[in-house]
Simulated scan of single mutants.
Amino acid sequence: MKQIVIAFLIILGLSPAILAQEGFKITGRLGGSLGGNLVLVGSSSEGAVKLGETTMIDGNFEFSGSVEGVMPAYILTEEQQPIATVMLENLEYTLVAGESGIEVLGGGESQKIWNEFEVINRHVLKEKMKMEQEGRAAYAQQNQMKLQALQQQFAKIATDAEAKQLDLFKKYKDSFVSAFMIASGMQQMDYVSLKTLYDMLGGNVQANFYGQLIARQLMALKQIEPGSVGPDFQGVTAAGETITLHGVKAKVKLVDFWASWCGPCRQEMPNVSKIYKKYHELGLEIIGVSLDKKVEEWTKAMKEEKMEWLNMIDMESRIARLYFVRGIPHTILLDENNRIIAKDLRGKQLEKKIAELLKN
């Protein structure tokens, strides 16, 4: 009877050895004289979970244990440097040194899908490192044409990689790996980009843990999209006055995220100052939010730039996180009802929009 069952399983393409697998086993065969302590950390709905630790000797190591379902896991050095990412389930994995880095062999369908994404990511990283080296040489030679050519070349590589990733998201819309990939990079995405990827996912994937993380991020990003009422915040101005965004009365409000150490911010300040002087009496109020870490550097820059408008310092980046500020200068334009009109306008575009709003 047992032989008949085994034969039937083989016909179905199921190996008895796989069915008997009660846990996972990760074997490292990296070669060389690599050594040191390693830790295996899983990512779950409860947060980071330590799944095991071991010592690597001459590039060899082993982890074993068990998990439920599929769990993203990271092999880290004791300095918390990542060695590899594994879509971990109760199967066998082997890590070997490849041309483009450490390769993960074995595992299940989720690992195969992850590896396809990794091929794209590693290609971009390899080209980026190569171009950074060429860029440093071009900068030393003050070769602006070469620098511009490198920027255009990398932009094309990034665009091609994005297109390939989109194809994979469509192909694997029902895999949790796609949701995990999107959730891992969503902090760098705006609402439209993230919503586009989320809408590609199948219903079951949208309902899983990573799908729900993306949905919550979308809800937060929606609050800072044009047309939404901007989240309120509070701060203390350089004059010692406690104010809130919603409490400031003005027909048009400009929130300007900046810092004393930000070159582009300082370059834009004369334009901001000109706009303030020209439109303040007509109903414009500016609230500067500095991301400086030291009060003296903030106040020194304010004096140097002769800032006459409201200004506060956000040393813990609380306000910046509220508005998902990923780079500065960053501006948010709001109407008298605190509804967001536009974001990231500068120069002539900023003045044109403010003038248009104040005419209405």
Rank of each mutant, 00 (worst) to 15 (best):
V248E: 04
M307W: 05
E285T: 06
S260T: 02
W309Y: 12
G98L: 11
V192D: 14
E162Q: 13
N311K: 08
K277N: 15
Q152G: 14
M186G: 02
M312K: 06
A84K: 03
I328A: 01
K126Q: 10
H123I: 06
D58G: 06
T196N: 15
M71E: 07
K249Q: 10
P72D: 01
K348V: 09
G47T: 08
L40C: 04
E62C: 06
E305M: 12
G52L: 03
A155N: 09
S184E: 07
L194F: 01
L345Y: 04
R339Y: 02
W309F: 08
L350D: 00
R216Y: 09
Y191W: 04
L12S: 09
D167G: 06
W114D: 01
K164G: 05
L125P: 07
M200Y: 08
S228T: 07
L245E: 04
A48I: 13
G185I: 03
K156L: 14
S290C: 06
I328D: 02
K294Q: 14
C265D: 03
A161Y: 00
S33Y: 08
D232L: 05
A48S: 15
L213P: 09
D232Y: 03
G69H: 10
N338F: 02
K278W: 10
M189E: 06
G42E: 08
G235N: 06
R339M: 14
Q212I: 06
L147A: 08
T27K: 12
V205T: 07
G202S: 03
W298V: 13
L91R: 13
F24G: 00
G327Y: 14
F233D: 07
T196R: 15
L150Y: 00
G59S: 09
Y93R: 02
F61M: 00
L358T: 02
V86I: 13
V248C: 03
R216K: 15
I354Q: 01
D174E: 11
I57S: 13
K146N: 08
P231Q: 06
N360I: 05
A355N: 13
G327L: 07
S45A: 15
K128H: 04
L38F: 00
D174S: 12
G36K: 09
M219Y: 11
R321S: 10
P82D: 01
K303A: 14
V41M: 04
W309L: 03
F169Y: 12
